[in-house]
């Protein structure tokens, strides 16, 4: 957080000190603004990827319904590909803007701000902390997001010399977690803090893992528990056990069905996108924060699609059903959004 404030202040100072000549001020503002790099990134993506793909697709005969393994591009996903590229281009463009020094406002996330408080509480109480990186393997993006949060928590824990226990349910997650904690300890100037015995493999079996972690919680009474990653039915068992031992609990998951359980049983919950924003937020790096701003443009696109979809659905409800020459009812206009824009035509 301190880094983030420092960075914002630094850029505010830069903005005040920059003086342009009146003639090219507008042009420079445009180029240093958010729109120019976004447009440039989108243009480069379209030029390098979309145009060749569409050209190849256009050369294919239209009546070939089945996708051959020799096809370079699946024409059924054209619209979706363009949408993906525009969203990715926007995110990359915002990163470029942030790299050039434009400060972005990132709304405070209570769960992330409470992490330092949780580490401090554990330090004051002289009790260990628990970090659960979820039940899935490292190929899941939720788990990767969890490990990036672990790196930040481990750095704080190393600074305060507070023990951190990381039981994992997958060996690859254990290896990644060890790397993350070791590097965090070195970054904090405390390489001796790292102890690989505290990051260990338990079992891949869901309830066997839960039994082991809950047993440890009852024995050691941790002061803070972090659940960051992909969770299933075990989420409530873990959170309720943590609650019963009086630990401050911060959870984060993108698993929709488990969010209500975490909200009910934990002190703070990172809901969906907040889990993925955590790494960027905690790192305070301009490029990573720029990506968060890029997501907002994606949300804007989603909002526009929702409004257009609602308008088309309303239009459909007021107009009589259209039938084609064979007497078959034509698909509704609102289906254009779902069938063409989102899935491809």
């Amino acid at each position: 957080m301190a880094t983030l404030t420092k960075y914002t202040d630094h850029n505010a100072l830069l903005q005040r000190n920059i003086k342009f000549l009146p003639g090219d001020m507008k042009s420079r503002r445009f180029r240093s603004g958010i729109l120019w790099p976004v447009l440039k990134a989108v243009f480069v993506f379209v030029a390098l990827f979309v145009t060749p793909c569409l050209t190849i697709a256009a050369e294919k005969p239209k009546d070939v319904a089945a996708k051959k393994s020799t096809d370079w591009f699946d024409t059924g996903k054209t619209t979706f590909a363009i949408l993906t590229i525009v969203v990715c281009g926007t995110v990359i463009g915002c990163t470029e803007v942030a790299r050039r020094g434009k400060p972005f406002y990132v709304r405070p996330i209570a769960g992330l701000q409470a992490m330092e408080e949780a580490v401090g509480r554990a330090t004051e109480m002289g009790k260990p902390m628990l970090f659960v990186p979820g039940l899935e393997d490292v190929k899941e993006i939720d788990t990767v997001a969890g490990i990036t949060i672990l790196a930040s928590v481990a750095r704080m824990a190393a600074e305060y010399d507070t023990p951190l226990e990381v039981p994992t349910s997958r060996t690859l997650v254990m290896t990644a977690a060890r790397e993350a904690v070791q590097s965090a300890a070195i970054a904090a100037g405390r390489p001796d803090y790292y102890n690989e015995d505290t990051i260990y493999y338990v079992t891949e079996e869901q309830f066997g893992y839960v039994a082991s972690v809950c047993g440890w919680m009852h024995r050691e009474k941790p002061a803070a528990c972090f659940y960051q990653g992909k969770f299933f039915a075990e989420s409530l068992i873990l959170a309720e056990t943590g609650n019963s031992v009086g630990a401050i609990q911060i959870a984060g998951t993108a698993e929709m069905s488990q969010l209500p359980f975490f909200v009910a049983a934990c002190d703070y919950t990172l809901i969906g996108e907040e889990l993925f924003a955590a790494s960027a937020y905690l790192s305070g790096e301009p490029a990573q924060l720029g990506m968060l701003k890029g997501q907002d443009f994606g949300k804007l696109a989603a909002m526009i699609l929702i409004v257009v979809g609602c308008a088309l659905a309303t239009w459909d409800s007021f107009s009589p059903p259209v039938k084609n020459a064979d007497g078959i009812e034509a698909p509704s206009r609102s289906r254009w959004i779902t069938d063409t824009v989102l899935k491809g035509g």
Partner: peptide, 17 residues
């Protein structure tokens, strides 16, 4: 609403990686 946020978060995280 949460799912749209998650999808965009996944895109941004994947790009970061």
């Amino acid at each position: 609403a949460i799912m749209i946020g998650i999808a965009l978060g996944v895109v941004a995280t994947s790009l970061r990686l």
